Simulated assay, not measured.
Amino acid sequence: MPPSTTPTLRQQRLGTELRKLRERSGLSATAAAGLLGLKQAQISNIESGRYAVSADRVRTFARTYSCGDAELIEALAAMTGGRKRGWWDEYRSHLPSGLVDLAELEHFASELRVALVIHIPALLQTTDHARALFRTVFPPLQQYEIEHRLTHRIKRQGILHGAEPTTYTATIHEAALRMGFGGRDVAATQLKHLLGMSELSHVTIRVLPFGEANFHGTGQGIDYVAGAVPQLDTVQLDTHHGCEFLDGEAQLAKYRSVVDHMETSALSPEASRDLIHRIAQEL
């Protein structure tokens, strides 16, 4: 199979984790290739995510690299499967790659934890609220670009519905609840939607109220995406230039601590619902 010139984030991550296993074993790419009966270039292409790799081959790599972590090995094996396309792939020619990769990342997540200050989390936005946000993007988006982003965002929300929805925890600053994007009616409907979503057993919404002295954030949106095992967790940060993905051990520990602190500093889910309801009544 020829190498892929545009590996997805998930394919890149699998390759990265295989490289980490090799490096921990003390093997060079050349030495590993010799033990595995491959060429050094094939090892490089697999580790960069440019070559698809089977689940059995992942297990062979792990044995060769003396990895005894069975849970990690099976989690990596589950990340294989060739180049199967997901619904998000239809957007690769229409949206920035980071947004498409984020949808794929969310689809395979075991749990999602998000923390935002100015915005309502994307997976909890109504259609009208999301459309109002896309109209504020700079440089301005064309109408067809807005519609592509809008349908993509709504499809992402599918992981919170269905027979086996993803466990989801959102910590939202009170500022985001009072921004009023789209005007009074849109804002009121958005808050009502938050209240409805907060009643779902797998969704937890906590609000950081104004005046909370222990607020531990920078205003940057954080998505902490839990993988099948902790080693495969990923952090996604919202930036002015797009999505930024982090998976270093120290980075994961840092942002896990930040999200932990924000959650413990926020109101309880019940008190959060009361605050959301009061803000909605004030509109």
Rank of each mutant, 00 (worst) to 15 (best):
Glu212Arg: 10
Glu212Val: 13
Glu212Gln: 06
Ala213Trp: 07
Ala213Phe: 13
Ala213Asn: 06
Asn214Pro: 02
Asn214Ala: 15
Asn214Trp: 13
Phe215Asp: 02
Phe215Pro: 03
His216Asn: 15
His216Leu: 15
His216Gln: 09
His216Thr: 14
Gly217Asp: 01
Gly217Trp: 01
Thr218Ala: 09
Thr218Ile: 09
Thr218Arg: 13
Gly219Tyr: 00
Gln220His: 14
Gln220Pro: 12
Gln220Cys: 15
Gly221Arg: 07
Gly221Cys: 10
Gly221Asn: 09
Gly221Val: 13
Ile222Val: 14
Ile222Leu: 10
Ile222Tyr: 09
Asp223Cys: 10
Asp223Val: 11
Asp223Arg: 14
Tyr224Leu: 13
Tyr224Ile: 09
Val225Thr: 04
Val225Ile: 12
Ala226Trp: 13
Gly227Cys: 11
Gly227Val: 13
Ala228His: 01
Ala228Trp: 03
Ala228Lys: 06
Ala228Met: 07
Val229Cys: 09
Pro230Gln: 09
Pro230Arg: 12
Gln231Ile: 13
Gln231Leu: 13
Gln231Asp: 12
Gln231Pro: 04
Leu232Gly: 02
Leu232Gln: 12
Asp233Met: 11
Asp233Ile: 10
Asp233Leu: 10
Thr234Arg: 05
Thr234Glu: 02
Thr234Asn: 02
Thr234Phe: 03
Thr234His: 01
Val235Arg: 00
Val235Met: 02
Val235Pro: 00
Val235Cys: 02
Leu237Gly: 11
Leu237His: 08
Leu237Gln: 12
Thr239Met: 11
Thr239Lys: 09
Thr239Gln: 12
Thr239Glu: 03
His240Ala: 14
His241Val: 13
His241Tyr: 07
Gly242Ile: 07
Gly242Phe: 07
Cys243Gln: 03
Glu244Asp: 01
Glu244Asn: 00
Phe245Ile: 09
Leu246Lys: 03
Leu246Ala: 06
Leu246Tyr: 04
Asp247Lys: 02
Gly248Pro: 12
Glu249Lys: 10
Glu249Phe: 04
Ala250Asn: 10
Ala250Asp: 11
Ala250Ile: 15
Ala250His: 10
Gln251Ala: 10
Gln251Glu: 07
Gln251Tyr: 05
Leu252Glu: 00
Leu252Gly: 00
Leu252Ile: 02
Ala253Met: 06
Lys254Ala: 12
Tyr255Leu: 12
Tyr255Pro: 02
Tyr255Gly: 04
Arg256Asp: 01
Arg256Gly: 06
Arg256Met: 03
Ser257Leu: 15
Ser257Val: 11
Ser257Asn: 03
Ser257Arg: 08
Ser257Glu: 07
Val258His: 01
Val259Asp: 04
Val259Phe: 07
Val259Ala: 05
